[in-house]
Design a protein around this nucleic acid. Structure first.
Ligand code: FES
Ligand code: FES
Lengths: 144, 144
DNA sequence: AGTATTCCTACCTTATTAGTAGTATATTAT
DNA sequence: ATAATATACTACTAATAAGGTAGGAATACT
């Protein structure tokens, strides 16, 4: 059970935007360079974050991306959901018609609890919280 | 973030054994039939559970599989770890040399918390707990 | 006009998951 | 002994998803 690079890269990119909230848009190539991610790949990830309403884009020269909301209003769960898809440990948690014996399935409850546990951790943290944790706010210290 | 069939099938198989603890070994083909899993695939999953020390096999006619320990001593996390591998949201949680800036990476702490949340749910439940939840203990009601 | 940037969409490559198949080996029953 | 019934082992295949590349269109600033 590993995190995809999509999510890891996406969180890093979102943090870059959060760290530069006051300084105007940040270009994909800047983020890609700083975080050592392929430009073309990051392009796609940003598009996902955009369609999830988490970031806004500014096209053309001097364009780039900015957060769509203040960093303290973007939960990690938002970023996670956008990129990793909903944490659905098993299909029938979303789609009740998926399994035949949904009503009294015992394992279903377990997976539901796991899912809930993950979400409550991610919902309790905003991008701003993470930024605050970094000591030197100019050089964000994260990787992966 | 989905569960693999390996884990889902494995848990179902383990529950079948737990439900038949008193009644001697259960054959792969019986489980496969009851749970609608390919015999040959299940064979491999049982081998994994065996090498993890969770089940014991009895070869030859009238053979099959039994739990290696009482059902109340097998945690769901044991089954999960055996089949899904350790819940490692990010590599550097296991392997500290993986990332360069491990010591003050902010995201690392987040993933560590997520990982811990998952594990504590799974560690808090044994196969027996799940069996107890089923109302009619003869026909186990689970799927997926 | 020219340059810098996002946007769109198709493709490709690799890794993982899921499943099949065949044969060898062990145990029981007759 | 022999036949029948199981697991054990190992290799192969198919399907899906992850990760990444590529090219060009659209948009906006200078
Ligand atoms: S009914 Fe879907 S997991 Fe049991
Ligand atoms: S150092 Fe490994 S996730 Fe940040």
């Amino acid at each position: 059970m590993k995190l995809s690079t999509r999510t890891r890269y996406g969180v890093r990119a979102a943090l870059e935007l959060a760290a530069n909230q006051s300084k105007g848009p940040v270009q994909i190539k800047t983020i890609a360079h700083r975080q050592d991610i392929s430009i073309k790949y990051l392009e796609q990830l940003m598009a996902i974050l955009k369609s999830a309403g988490l970031v806004r884009s500014i096209r053309g020269a001097k364009g780039g991306y900015i957060l769509a909301k203040p960093a303290n209003q973007i939960k990690l769960s938002d970023v996670f959901n956008a990129l990793e898809g909903p944490v659905t440990t098993v299909e029938c948690l979303e789609n009740k018609n998926y399994c035949a014996r949904v009503t009294d399935c015992v394992t279903r409850q377990v997976w539901a609890e796991v899912q809930q546990a993950i979400m409550s951790v991610l919902q309790s943290m905003t991008l701003q919280d993470l930024i605050n944790r970094t000591k030197d706010k100019k050089t964000l210290n994260y990787q992966i």
